[in-house]
Write a protein that binds this DNA or RNA. Structure first.
Length: 594
RNA sequence: CGGAGUGUGGCGCAGCCUGGCUAGCGCAUCUGCUUUGGGUGCAGAGGGUCGGGGGUUCGAAUCCCUCCACUCCGACCA
């Protein structure tokens, strides 16, 4: 009995807290809207976040979240928490500041560049601000998890990260400090990892669907972090920094860096021209060559010299069609080429080819040559003559030069066949908001994270890691949902679901009474409401509410009350509609549950 | 890292080249009036060591030196 009573009080207290959090009057809220667009904000989401009073810049790549912004953040975090918990993950919270020892154990203290912000404490001990938490979580697991019976396990946190970006820009889209949900799973074997990976893949779909974003999961490169399977989750937006290749006919989607460029179909055309050397004084770039010789870029070949992976072949030639771009990720995977891909110096070029960069070509080269599939399919092409100021025309493989190693080393382009054999490639831009990896044993091995298996043998764990850029999701949501008046929040993450804009409330007791009544009953229904109780002109209030993107707007004025009506308009509607006062609450609840 | 640029009330800018009254303007803020279904109008007020330091000069926001901060562009040329 006593216990129940206590619980009841506790429950009432929680309700009260939520109550306060849900509703608000503008007179109590830091509504920091501005009429003018900041000069340094380049993308629309950054401009609107500042104008709507969501963030303020403190220093380069560092932002303060104002009350309105925090409400959006919390909404997103809540969705993520619910879905992660539902997927069986457990929440933890790890330090932002991390000791160098762990990073030395994993080898990343040396590997990471200046992006890792290193600091010393008063005892001159080395620390860093965590750009990610593989080391810390692996350390936790190796200390806490002893038995295979405790596996699999998935731990996540929602926490601040710091990466000292070369050039922070676009507001919170590429900031130095940002909030991330990162999760790390641990398994006895790869099959188990793959299962959890699939669960996370599905969970991410649920999360981004609930937030209300138009997104795609795409196959991605595993990057420097290592491992096998990886998907990126991209919000589609023209301002996105990443290019994604889609098939027009199937659900194939991959980061442009990873999508395989297939060989052109059909046999290579037969030679029809004679090999000719032409003088091309001061002509270097493909563009110049095309203009000078009146040929298409696709009829030319460019030859790049990069450093080799071993001393036997210090310089390697890469041959691509003039209109194609080299893909350094693909190139670095080639056994002959040094990783990271590094261009040969001018001196090395001179030594190997006997000419300047700009006149290099495959004909007569004695170093190993890696030829792109599309380049290998060209006939009667133009290329450098390995003689400064000269090019060759009418060049043909086999007849004039052996193609050597033919493979895929370029970026896929629009119109290429889809790698899965269905349809053509289309390219769209996306904002990366999530990334999931099968890490394997990279960190668990380095940090010796093992458990005893059923045979009482120590066994290194398999790991997966799963990130969501929480703050970036907000910017991406705005990029995707705005108009010339401001933000249009998806309902699930809006700082308030509903706003009430009263007309002349401070002069009309009748309006004031109707407004208070509605505000109270919506509060009781658990609706998150913002009441604009400022003594401002209607235009000011309308503009502010539209700028900050509240999805549902209620207007109460003498005019409507005379006819027992209340005005409703969704942020996306062109025109408001008048609803009978008596039915208004049920009407609104129906709108909210749409 | 390379290149370009900026720093003047809370924000956005003018003034600087050609040194000289009391450093201006717009927005925002405060007061009063006005107005009230789409950023209204009028009047008034507060708020600045002109990024820091040094120098030239009778006199420096302005010219010179130096330091700092920030922003933008570039980092595949073949």
């Amino acid at each position: 009995m006593n216990k129940l009573h206590v619980n009841h009080n506790h429950y009432a207290k929680i309700c009260f807290l939520i109550y306060i959090h849900m509703t608000m009057k503008t007179s109590q809220l830091l509504l920091a809207t501005t009429r003018e667009t900041p000069a340094d904000a380049e993308v629309i989401s950054h401009q609107l976040m500042i104008r709507a009073g969501i963030i303020r810049r403190l220093a380069g790549g560092l932002y303060t979240w104002l009350p309105l912004g925090v409400r959006v953040l919390r909404n997103i975090e809540q969705i993520i928490r619910e879905e992660m918990n539902r997927a069986g993950a457990q929440e933890v919270l790890m330090p932002v500041v991390q000791p160098s020892e762990l990073w030395e154990e994993s080898g990343r203290w040396q590997q990471y560049g200046p992006e890792l912000l290193r600091i010393k404490d008063r005892h001159q001990r080395d620390f860093c601000l965590g750009p990610t938490h593989e080391e810390v979580i692996t350390d936790m697991v190796r200390k806490e998890i002893r038995s295979y019976k405790q596996l699999p396990a998935n731990y996540y946190q929602i926490q601040t990260k710091f990466r000292d970006e070369i050039r922070p820009r676009f507001g919170v889209m590429r900031s130095r400090e940002f909030i991330m949900k990162d999760a790390y799973s641990f398994h006895l074997n790869r099959e188990c990892l793959e299962q959890t990976y699939q669960v996370m893949y599905d969970t991410y779909h649920r999360i981004f669907e609930r937030i209300g974003l138009d997104f795609r999961a795409v196959q991605a490169d595993t990057g420097s972090i290592g491992g096998d399977g990886s998907h990126e989750f991209h919000v589609l937006a023209d301002s996105g920094e990443d290019a994604i290749a889609f098939s027009s006919a199937s659900d194939f989607a991959a980061n442009i860096e990873l999508a395989e460029a297939l060989a052109p179909t059909g046999p290579r055309p037969l030679p029809s021209q004679a090999l000719t050397e032409v003088a091309t004084p001061n002509i270097h770039s493909i563009e110049d060559v095309c203009q000078f010789l009146s040929v298409q870029a696709s009829q030319t070949l460019k030859t790049l010299l990069v450093l080799g992976a071993n001393e036997d072949n210090p310089v390697i030639a890469l041959v691509l069609r003039g209109d194609h771009e080299v893909n350094d990720i693909k190139v670095e995977k080639h056994p002959l080429v040094a990783s990271p891909m590094t261009f040969a110096s001018a001196d090395q070029i001179k030594q190997v080819c006997g000419c300047d960069a700009g006149s290099i070509g495959p004909v007569g080269l004695t170093i190993p040559m890696v030829v792109d599939r599309a380049a290998a399919h060209c006939a009667d092409f133009v290329c450098g003559a390995n003689k400064s100021g000269f090019h060759l025309t009418g060049v043909n493989w086999d007849r004039d030069v052996q193609p050597g190693l033919v493979t895929d080393i370029r970026n896929i382009v629009e119109g290429d066949p889809s790698p899965d054999g269905k349809g053509e490639i289309q390219i769209k831009r996306g904002i990366e908001v999530g990334h999931i990896f099968q890490l394997g044993d990279k960190y668990s091995k380095a940090l010796n994270a093992n458990v005893l298996n059923e045979h009482s043998r120590a066994q290194i764990l398999e790991m997966g890691c799963y990130g969501i850029g929480v703050t970036r999701v907000i910017a991406a949501a705005i990029e995707q949902n705005h108009d010339d008046k401001g933000i249009i929040w998806p309902d699930a993450i809006a700082p308030f679901q509903v706003c009430i804009v009263p007309m002349q409330m401070h002069k009309s007791p009748r309006v004031a009474k109707a407004v208070e009544q509605l505000y109270d009953s919506l509060q009781k229904q658990g609706v998150s409401v913002l009441l604009d109780d400022r003594d401002e002109r209607p235009g000011v209030m309308f503009n502010d509410m539209e700028l900050i993107g509240i999805p549902h707007r209620i207007v109460i004025g003498e005019r409507g009350l005379d006819q027992q009506q209340i005005e409703y308009k969704h942020r996306r509607d062109a025109e408001p509609q008048n609803i009978a006062e008596a039915e208004f609450i049920s009407f609104l609840m129906a709108q909210l549950n749409k």
